[in-house]
Structures are given as C-alpha cells and as structure tokens.
Amino acid sequence: MTHSASPAARPSDAGESPPVADGPSPDRLSLALIPLFKGVVYQDAAPTVWQALLDLQARVRDYVGVLGLELLLDEAEGYAYLRQRTPNEGEDELPRLVPRRQLSYPVSLLLALLRRKLAEHDASGGDPRLVLAREQIVDLMRVFLPDTSNEAKLMDRMDTHINKVIDLGFLRKLRGQEGQFEVRRILKAFVDAQWLSELDQRLAEYQAHAAGEESA
C-alpha cells in the first residue's frame, strides 16, 4: 500500500509544512508484517518490530484476515504469531498458509515435559525465564524412553529431538553458554491449561508406548 502525493500537496516555496499522511507508513506496516510471516516475533529479540506490532495491531489483523489468518499477540508474555483462522459457519475454508506439522512421539513427549516444567517453574515464582541444561532435558525424557546401554547413541538421539524443538521455536540456545537452553514461553500457547490438566494421563500413555517399544 503506497501513498502518492499530488502536485497540490507539495510544500510551496513559501515554506509551508507538508501535510501529515493519514495512517501508518507502508514501511512500518511491512516491518510489522514480514517477520510475522516468517515465524514468531519476540519482544526481547526484536523490540522495534514488537513496537510496530503494538501500534498497528488493527491494521495487521485486517491485513492477515484477508488471507484467512489471525494474529495471536500476548503482551504479558512478549510474543506474537499468526494462526490459521477457523472459518465461520457457512464460510468456505481457504487454502492453508500455516502448515500443520506431524510430530514424532519423542518430540511431542519432550514438548509435554517442557510444558509441565514451565508450569512448575512459574508456580515457584522468581525468574520468569526457565533455563535448562542439556543433561536436565535428557533426564526429563529418560524414564519415558526404552532402556539402552549405549549412552552415546541415546545422547545423539536426544540432540536430534532437542534440535527439532529448537526449529519449532519452543527452545532457544543461549549464546555463549554451551548446552544451556531457554524454554520459550510461547509453549504455553500451544500446550494450554486444559491439555496440561490431562498431562498425567498422557504421560502414562507415553510410558506405555515406551514399554511397547522396548518389548518390541
């Protein structure tokens, strides 16, 4: 969206100030939109983009709504992302711009365990950031995975699962701190309170699944 000035709108030689354009500049709207289409926007990682999103929320929602998307923005937690909008009754469903991802058993298990750890961390108060060492993450998973005498192979597999969760945006490597990861708070949006309340049952299912793999 661009604004073109007519000759009459140019400042005169007498030094008149140019008129102020209505609405946000196209550049600022683009600054808010483009990172959203690429993934999650975090307040701490991109403060300029975050401020543009706050200022232009209504415009952003209108723009992405045309594409069948909706903006999810959590000011308290400091993140924003786009989600496919559920069509209203009688509406045709648009082609998906946000693909669904099928997660493997270990990755979905790891997300569940990280979400529970985040809930426990929040309940204890203190630092809002949850930072875990690689070994702590492995220990969370170990009881749910088939027993193995090959520790090196287990760690290689765990690194693969951890890297997948990083790619999904739910973990972040801490720069300059080898083997340290921050659990991103956006995980709360994808694993909600209702799902979390059923977590014990789900973890029992995961253990049964692990036992079945081991016996196989």
Rank of each mutant, 00 (worst) to 15 (best):
Arg96Asn: 13
Gly15Asn: 00
Tyr105Gly: 13
Ser215Gly: 11
Gly179Thr: 06
Tyr63Lys: 15
Gly68Gln: 01
Ala133Ser: 14
Ser104Pro: 05
Leu114Met: 04
Ala21Asn: 09
Val191Cys: 12
Gln102Tyr: 10
Gly65Leu: 01
Leu145Ile: 07
Ala8Trp: 14
Leu118Asn: 01
Ile162Thr: 03
Leu69Asp: 02
Gln136Ile: 07
Gln207His: 13
Glu198His: 13
Glu182Ser: 07
Gly90Ser: 02
Ala52Gln: 01
Asp139Tyr: 04
Ala45Pro: 06
Pro18Gln: 00
Glu93Met: 09
His161Gln: 06
Asp92Pro: 10
Leu97Met: 11
Gly125Gln: 03
Ala211Glu: 15
Gln180Phe: 13
Gly179Cys: 05
Thr160Lys: 14
Pro26Glu: 02
Val60Arg: 03
Leu171Trp: 01
Pro87Lys: 02
Asp44Ser: 12
Glu213Gln: 15
Gly176Ser: 01
His121Pro: 01
Ala112His: 05
Asp167Tyr: 10
Leu196Val: 10
Arg10Asn: 07
Val98Ser: 01
Leu145Thr: 04
Asp139Lys: 12
Gln201Arg: 13
Glu91Cys: 01
Thr2Tyr: 10
Leu29Tyr: 01
Pro95Phe: 08
Ala112Ser: 12
Asp147Glu: 15
Asp200Tyr: 08
Arg185His: 14
Tyr105Trp: 15
Leu174His: 06
Pro7Cys: 05
Arg28Tyr: 10
Ala9Asn: 09
Arg116Pro: 02
Pro19Asn: 03
Lys188Asn: 15
Arg202Asn: 09
Leu187Ser: 00
Leu187Gln: 00
Asp74Val: 06
Asp74Ser: 02
Gln136Leu: 06
Gln84Ile: 08
Leu56Ala: 08
Ala76Trp: 10
Arg142Met: 08
Leu67Tyr: 02
Leu94Gln: 11
Pro35Ala: 05
Val64Lys: 00
Tyr206Arg: 10
His161Arg: 07
Leu154Asp: 01
Arg61Ala: 12
Gly125Asn: 08
Gly23Ala: 03
Ala204Trp: 06
Asn150Ile: 11
Ala14Val: 10
Ala119Ile: 14
Tyr42Thr: 07
Leu196Asp: 06
Ala32Pro: 00
Val107Glu: 02
Val98Arg: 01
Ala211Asp: 14
Ala9Trp: 06
Leu145Gly: 05
Asp62Met: 10
Asp192Pro: 03
Asp27Trp: 11
Tyr105Thr: 15
Gly179Asp: 04
Val20Pro: 07
Gln57Ala: 11
Glu75Arg: 13
Gly68Leu: 00
Asn150Met: 12
Gln51Asp: 11
Asn88Ile: 12
Val40Tyr: 04
Leu31Asn: 06
Glu135Asp: 13
Arg184Ser: 03
